[in-house]
Amino acid sequence: MTSAPFQHLDIAVLANWLEDDAPLTLVDIRDPQSYAQGHVPGSRRLGNDTVDAFLAEAPRQAPLVVICYHGHSSQQAAAWLAGQGFAEVYSLDGGFTDWQHRHPDRVER
């Protein structure tokens, strides 16, 4: 039996990691307009146009958290990124929509 290439991450855990300034890489795979309207602080948008540069520069040993709208498409992206050599990959359960609902004061624009 093989283990999943990524893990699920609860919003409360991510909030704690950010409060503790844990070394993380946060990527948001939503469209550019949605990202511009609000995103998790410290995240960077990752799309087809930026993925090559990201793969060239991103640290492979730091935990990588993938954020989408509701926590669904981030799972596929997390699995793909795990296959690119990232050691610890997470998909944020609930996505940005749930993050914004629970932490409206922690949305960067």
Rank of each mutant, 00 (worst) to 15 (best):
V13F: 00
H39A: 13
R60C: 01
Q37R: 15
P5E: 11
W80H: 12
C68D: 15
G95C: 07
Q84E: 12
D10N: 12
Q61W: 01
C68Q: 08
D28K: 04
Y90S: 02
D52G: 01
I67L: 11
A78D: 01
I11N: 12
E108R: 13
S73F: 01
I29L: 11
V40D: 02
D20V: 05
D28W: 02
H101G: 03
G42A: 09
L18M: 14
E57R: 11
P63K: 05
D105C: 06
W17Q: 12
L81F: 09
S34K: 05
L26Y: 02
A77I: 05
A22K: 11
F86M: 06
H101L: 11
L26K: 09
P23L: 07
T25H: 00
A58P: 06
P32T: 04
P59W: 00
L46T: 02
D28R: 01
A12R: 07
S43E: 00
G94S: 05
A22H: 10
A4N: 13
R45V: 01
W80C: 05
I67R: 10
W99P: 01
S91I: 05
G42H: 03
T97W: 03
R60W: 03
Q76A: 14
Y69S: 13
T25P: 01
D10Q: 12
Y35N: 08
L18I: 06
G71A: 09
M1F: 08
R106W: 10
P23A: 10
F96S: 04
L18S: 03
D105H: 14
D28S: 04
D49E: 08
Y35C: 07
